[in-house]
C-alpha cells in the first residue's frame, strides 16, 4: 500500500506529540494541573497573534506566551489566590485577547481554526523537525527528572527531606508543558492540547500498577488515538485534531468500562 507523504508526516507528528504528552500528562493528572494546562494552552492563541504581529515563528511566540502564562499563574498561586478562579480568568482572557488581537492584524487574513483545532495534515518537513526536537526535549526532561518529579509529586516534604527542590521540579514541569503546548498547537490546536495530556493518562490509570507503567500506557493509548483519529479523519473527512481527541475519549470510555467489567468478573 502506498501511503501519501502528508499522511506519513501527519502520523509522525502525532506520534511524537503522544510520546511527550504521555508522561507529562500523568503528572498533570497526579498534580491536578488540568486547568493549568488549559490556561497555558489557551495562552498560545495570544502567542500566535504576537508572533504574527512581530513576524517571529509561531512556535517561538507560543512557547514564550505559554511560559509567561505559567509564570503568572505560579506567582499568583504563591500569593494565595484561589487557583480555579484565577486559572479560569486567565485562560479565557488570554484566549479572548488572542482572538481579538489576531483580528487586528493587517494584511493576510488568518485562518484561526488552524490554531484552535490544529492542522496536522499540513505538517511540513520543517514542522516535523521542530515537533521532533520539542518532543525529544520534553521526553528527555521527563526521563532525566523522573525520580525527582515523582518524589516531589508524592510529597514535597519528603522530597525536600532528601534534598530534592520541589520548586525546581515545578519549573521543570512548567517548561515541559510550555514546550508541549508549542509543538502540539499544529497537531491538535490550542483548544484540545489539554485533552491530549489528560485523556490518555486517565485512560491508562485503571490498568497501571506503577507510575512508570501508567506513563508507558498513556503513551501507547495516545499513539493509538493519533492513528485511529487520523484514519477516521481520512475516511470520513472529519477535522483531524478533534478526531484524534474523540478517539482518545473512546479509549477512555472503553478503559473505564473495561475496568468495571474486569472487577465484576473477578469478584465472581
Amino acid at each position: 500500500m502506498i501511503v501519501d507523504d502528508f499522511i506519513l508526516r501527519a502520523a509522525l507528528a502525532g506520534l511524537m506529540v503522544a510520546l511527550a504528552a504521555g508522561p507529562l500528562g500523568c503528572f498533570v493528572v497526579w498534580r491536578r494541573m488540568a486547568y493549568f494546562g488549559d490556561a497555558t494552552a489557551h495562552a498560545a492563541i495570544l502567542g500566535v497573534a504576537l508572533a504574527l504581529a512581530f513576524s517571529v515563528s509561531v512556535f517561538l511566540g507560543t512557547l514564550i506566551t505559554a511560559l509567561v502564562m505559567a509564570a503568572v499563574v505560579s506567582t499568583l498561586a504563591g500569593r494565595g489566590w484561589a487557583m480555579d478562579t484565577t486559572l479560569g480568568v486567565l485562560a479565557h482572557s488570554a484566549l479572548a485577547l488572542g482572538l481579538v488581537a489576531v483580528s487586528f492584524l493587517p494584511g493576510v487574513r488568518v485562518d484561526l481554526t488552524v490554531y484552535l483545532f490544529g492542522d496536522i495534515l499540513t505538517v511540513s518537513r520543517n514542522d516535523l523537525v521542530v515537533i521532533g526536537l520539542g518532543a525529544a526535549m520534553v521526553l528527555g526532561l521527563m526521563v532525566w527528572r523522573w525520580r525527582f518529579l515523582l518524589a516531589a509529586t508524592i510529597s514535597e516534604d519528603l522530597a525536600q527531606s532528601a534534598g530534592v527542590n520541589p520548586a525546581r521540579e515545578r519549573m521543570v514541569l512548567v517548561l515541559a508543558l510550555a514546550i508541549t503546548v508549542a509543538v502540539a498547537l499544529k497537531v491538535v490546536g490550542a483548544l484540545l492540547i489539554a485533552a491530549m495530556l489528560i485523556i490518555p493518562a486517565a485512560a491508562a490509570r485503571a490498568y497501571a500498577r506503577s507510575p512508570e507503567l501508567m506513563a508507558a500506557l498513556a503513551v501507547t493509548l495516545g499513539a493509538a488515538a493519533v492513528l485511529a483519529g487520523l484514519g477516521l479523519s481520512l475516511q470520513f473527512d472529519t477535522p483531524a485534531g478533534p478526531s484524534i481527541v474523540a478517539a482518545a475519549s473512546a479509549f477512555f470510555v472503553g478503559s473505564v468500562g473495561g475496568a468495571g467489567i474486569w472487577r465484576l468478573v473477578r469478584r465472581g
Binding site: 493528572v29 509529586t153 519528603l158 506503577s210 507510575p211 501508567m214
Partner: peptide, 10 residues
Amino acid sequence: LHLDPNLPLT
C-alpha cells in the same frame, strides 16, 4: 501525606 488516587503506587 496526601496521595492522589490517580497515582498508582505500591
